[in-house]
Every structure is written in structure tokens, then in C-alpha cells.
């Protein structure tokens, strides 16, 4: 079972690698959105420092959102989703494997890019740790919640827009705790509470999201 699970993750990573550019596209979008803000609000360092955490998190959230619709779409179109449903492991574990692969190809690269954007946005030096930990805990949650939305809208007319409409409100808690962790760290406060909340949300969604997404996928397979 573990073997199949790992094979699934490997398969998605290979596919992403072969199609190429998925991670690069997410990173490029991430950087692009963040760099719009100094152009929009002006380059004053105090202003940028003030909005750095929010900007970086919102941009990361949008990048994840943008990459969600291909999570199951390609597999449905070429029929491999039917094959995946026939595997000897529960469909929810297939979903979990795909969400992990999605995180490895988007959330993780975004997390690693974030400190660089912190430099551009004059982020306070004390806040980098909180930004990294927050994104490490927060982006997997985004991938998992996104898996529900992607599964619900797979094979649906104008699925991409609908996916955004459904998933965005569900992302708000991650955004709030992620940003306030960075801000707390920048002001020299403890971030333990934020990290705990982010961990709690991750552990909650890791249980619920694969099950809900598997139910939804079964609809597309019928």
C-alpha cells in the first residue's frame, strides 16, 4: 500500500517534470504578482514593510489557486482517473498522493521563493523564520482544500472560475494565520499560537479533505 502510494506521488512528479514548467509557472506568477505591489502603492520602504506579509501570502494563495484546475483534469481527460480508481488502495489515498505531489510542485517551490520576495518587499529580518514555517504549514493545507474544489469541478463547464469561487473563501483562515504569524514575528512577539493553529488546520484538512475529494471524484467517474 505504501509502495503504491509512493509510486503515485512519483508518477505525478514525473508527469509534472515531463510536461515541464508547472513549478516555474507558479513561481513566475508569484513573483510577478508581488512585484506589482511596489508599482501600485509606491516604493516607500516603510509602506512595503507594512504590507509585505499580506502581499506575499495573497500572491502565494493566488498562485496555488491558479494551479489547482490541472490537479485532476488531465487524468480525467486521458482516462487514467478510471485506472486510479481501480487501484487496490482507497481513492482518498490517491487524492492524498496527488495533493502531496501538487504541494511538492507548487507549494514547496513557492515557500522557497518567498524569502526572496521578502527581500524585495523590505520584510523585517526577524520575520523570515515565521514566513517560512507559516508557508511550510500553510501551503499543504491550501493544496488539500484545493483538492476538494478541483475534485468537485473536474469535468464541469467553466470549472476553473467555479473552482476559484468555491475555494477562495475556504482559504481565508490559512491566510489570516499565515500573515499574522509573520506580523507577530516582525513585532517581536511569539508565533507559537499561530504555528499551532496552522498545524491544527493542516492536521484537520489532511483527514477531511482526501475523503471529501474522493467522494467528489466518484461523481466524475460515474
Amino acid at each position: 500500500m505504501t509502495h503504491t502510494f509512493l509510486m503515485l506521488i512519483r508518477r505525478d512528479l514525473l508527469l509534472a517534470h515531463r510536461q515541464g514548467g508547472a513549478s516555474l509557472l507558479a513561481i513566475a506568477f508569484f513573483v510577478l504578482v508581488v512585484s506589482l505591489f511596489p508599482l501600485g502603492v509606491g516604493p516607500a520602504p516603510e509602506m512595503l514593510e507594512r504590507i509585505a506579509a499580506g502581499t506575499i501570502w495573497v500572491a502565494a494563495l493566488l498562485s496555488v489557486l491558479l494551479s489547482l484546475d490541472r490537479m485532476f483534469q488531465a487524468d480525467l481527460e486521458d482516462g487514467s482517473l478510471d485506472q486510479l480508481a481501480l487501484l487496490p488502495i482507497p481513492l482518498s489515498l490517491v487524492v492524498l498522493a496527488k495533493a502531496i505531489a501538487h504541494w511538492l510542485t507548487t507549494g514547496l517551490p513557492l515557500t522557497l521563493t518567498a524569502p526572496l520576495l521578502g527581500l524585495l518587499m523590505q520584510l523585517s529580518p526577524d520575520a523570515y523564520g515565521a514566513l517560512l514555517i507559516g508557508m511550510l504549514l500553510g501551503t499543504p493545507t491550501l493544496s488539500l482544500i484545493g483538492a476538494i474544489g478541483a475534485a468537485l469541478t473536474v469535468g464541469v463547464r467553466r470549472g476553473g472560475v467555479l473552482l476559484t469561487l468555491i475555494v477562495t473563501p475556504l482559504y481565508i483562515p490559512v491566510l489570516i494565520f499565515g500573515v499574522s504569524a509573520v506580523e507577530a514575528a516582525a513585532q517581536g512577539f511569539s508565533t507559537t499560537a499561530h504555528v499551532l493553529f496552522l498545524s491544527a488546520m493542516l492536521s484537520g484538512t489532511i483527514v477531511i479533505a482526501p475523503i471529501a475529494a474522493a467522494w467528489s471524484l466518484k461523481l466524475a467517474l460515474d
Binding site: I148, L170, A212, W215, S216
Partner: peptide
């Protein structure tokens, strides 16, 4: 499914 996920969230 969405209504229930929303209710949890």
C-alpha cells in the same frame, strides 16, 4: 459535499 465542507470550515 460542498455544503458540508463549508459547514466544517
Amino acid at each position: 459535499i460542498l455544503a458540508l465542507v463549508g459547514a466544517i470550515n
